[in-house]
């Protein structure tokens, strides 16, 4: 048994809950370390003195104060919401807010419903306008596809012209360096 094991076992030794072999180890330790006996006795003394500490009594008015607090708690829900002032069990404020929310949802819902008198379901303008740029080439009209192809060809021709210019510039610079 080392010092840590000894300290960890002090309470169990005092309360007599160590096994026989643990108790023997413990006693061997204190026999070889006489100063550890002092520690055991001090812990024992602390336990005894704490057990002797007197009970603390409540004040004579404890019960009266407690019952007043209980009464306050009992009456609290009744004070918050008077039964006559509720709408389906909700306070007027919550009932009002919920009514506004419900009416708002109904209005939004009505706007979403299509007008059946105009034939098949029309697609709102803002949907078609926004979705146009992301149409896949396969679904685009033929003229649009041709236009975009022509644009791409034009772009690639411009890139080639620029590359030729750069190449000639570099060649000129190399010539200049060689001449110097």
């Amino acid at each position: 048994m080392d010092r840590y094991q000894f300290e960890d076992s002090i309470s169990e030794y005092i309360e007599n809950t160590l096994t026989l072999s643990q108790r023997k180890d413990f006693e061997d330790y204190i026999e070889n370390n006489p100063e550890s006996v002092v520690l055991v006795e001090r812990v024992r003394s602390v336990i005894n003195n704490m057990q002797k500490m007197p009970d603390v009594k409540t004040s004579p008015d404890f019960m009266g104060q407690l019952m007043r607090k209980v009464d306050v708690e009992k009456n609290r829900p009744a004070q918050r919401v008077k039964p006559g002032n509720t709408v389906f069990g909700f306070t007027p404020l919550y009932a009002g807010l919920m009514s506004v929310a419900v009416v708002g949802l109904i209005m939004i819902g009505l706007q979403m419903i299509p007008d059946s008198s105009q034939g098949p379901t029309p697609i709102p303008n803002h949907f078609t306008q926004e979705s146009a740029p992301v149409q896949s080439p396969a679904t685009q009209p033929h003229e649009l596809r041709m236009e975009s192809l022509a644009g791409a060809e034009e772009d690639s021709a411009n890139v080639e012209v620029q590359m030729d210019k750069r190449r000639s510039n570099i060649k000129n610079k190399i010539r200049l360096v060689k001449n110097q």
Binding site: E7, D8, I10, S11, E12, L39, R42, V43, V46, I47
Partner: peptide, 16 residues
């Protein structure tokens, strides 16, 4: 158990 033992050790240290 460990906390009680440690608490008692601290108390005896404070009260020695």
């Amino acid at each position: 158990k460990s906390r009680i033992n440690r608490a008692r050790l601290q108390l005896q240290e404070a009260l020695k």
